[in-house]
Nucleic acid binder design. Sequence first.
RNA 1: GCGCCUGUAGCUCAGCUGGAUAGAGCAACGGACUUCUAAUCCGUAGGUCGCACGUUCGAGUCGUGCCAGGCGCGCCA
Length: 562
Amino acid sequence: MKSLIKDIIINAADFAFKNGLLPSDFKPDMDIEAPRHANHGDFSTNFAMVSASVQKMAPRKIAEVIVSAIDVKKIDILEKIEIAGPGFINFFLAPTAWYPFIKMIHDDGENFGRSDIGSNKKVQVEFVSANPTGPLHIGHGRGAAVGDAVGNILAFSGFDVQKEYYINDSGRQIRTLGLSVWLRLSQLLGNQIDFPDDCYQGDYIIDIAKEINSKMGDLIAQKSEAEAVDICAKYAADKILQEIKDDLVGFGVEFDRWFSEQSLYDSGKVQDAINTFQDKGVIYQKDGALWFSTESFGDEKDRVVVRNNGLTTYFASDIAYHKDKFDRGFDRVIDVWGADHHGYINRINAAIEASGRKKEQFSVILVQLVNLLRGGQPVAMSTRSGEFVTLKEIVDEVGKDAARFIFLSRSYESGLDFDLEVAKQQTAENPVYYVQYVHARISGIVAKASEAGIISDQAKLSLAAKSQNSLELLKEAEELNLIKLLASFPEVVQKSAAALHPHFIFTYLTSLASAFHGYYNHYKVITEDEDLTISRLCLVSSVKQVIKNGLTLLGVSAPERM
RNA sequence: GCGCCUGUAGCUCAGCUGGAUAGAGCAACGGACUUCUAAUCCGUAGGUCGCACGUUCGAGUCGUGCCAGGCGCGCCA
């Protein structure tokens, strides 16, 4: 639609130039947008203002010339054109311009909104990637919802998307996990122990120790401490990782690949990356350690990759991991991190540039922290003491759909208050029901129409939409407004993909839901007039489809009944 | 001290690459169910967009400097 408007403007400008009404045939980089206020038309352009300096004419004068060069009567999608404000040219479209979208939605179905702006480029979205040392909490939940939705939106926009989880199954935290479990096991067997502060404090460690004791207590007893700790570490990490996987499935998140940090060491890729960077001269030796000169790539200071005790830092495997991502053929790599990790962006950027990739190929989505509340009061959360509400508990209490929708309701650049009581409420305060209710309501209407024999099934409805015979009966302002909103969905998806902002979809869905609920309360879909009934059924079933498409991108279900 | 994020209605937040009269929900007040689901709708009220300069036809949006809050600045992960 916008490109049609643009063609009209360009043609008018050409015409005006050829007839000597404009001194220059220069075409500025104009905007064509849907104005905020309906009385500013369906589309508006700033052509006249941005041309003013080149044309050396007043903006309103230019606008007059352009408008005079457009024959509204000859263009059937146009109703009228107005000049307003400092020189905006406002286009008012005829209702007939909008009806084809109903047909398009019925034709495209679940693919309405899909685009190919991604040109099938390979994109990897890595998210959650929590250490397998404890259960997922609410912060991981927000990251999971964001990463999953971003992946869905990019895939819907024509990118070839892979969702990946990076398992930190190597290094100190895993040894600490093993030690924590082993100490608890030892405690179970009646030994006096000193449980260190830097060990994992949660009760789940004791549960795992109990499980190991009953399953293989005898075996462990025969091992040396070092071996026993190793066994505990392996057992606990496997067990916790499995629970993480289960919890994510329960949250509706499925990964295409689970990537092990340890595998980078086993395959020699960490050492390869270090060697490569040494050859390039970006890794050097100092004070018995190996340093990566990240400062020359814009970081605050250089960073250690191999400590003077010979052990690599986590940064060494991160370098290898990100190098490997691109070696696997991804054009673009997106990491979803908690905001508390923002200090690492520069050094990963350095690693990416040193690997010969462009900075633009890598983006980090920083997800701000979540405050968990219950009835307005903060819920005490401390990983250190092991006292925290897990993601599973939240999903069990409020449901997957409510949790995901709330996580995606705000920009991830803002902190989020997540109130368990609000998330459980089935009121307008809880936006998920507000939107899902649209889908359920329309399902009810279509079912009733079907029972009444007005329209027997979805297929016939699609047929009616395609014929467009009676769609012109949809002439109420609310109906045209709904169609315009539906027509804008593809653009919303594309903007969401370009900005990597899933909450655009949320905002869109709530405004579409609001428009529908208002319409529903004013007009009956099923009336005595069969033609009108059929055209309204076409309209509301389009709304239903778009609501479902949007919810699907966010990983939220669209129920037939509530 | 340095870096990142945030600051918009009483509260929680939208505001897309700079556009016209800054929006929504909640809370408050007044209305609408013998009706396709009231998990809904309609109406009223609510603002120096943290502050100050600057960029330009035009700034909530961009730049600089302050102020306030959150987070981060390890040969930890």
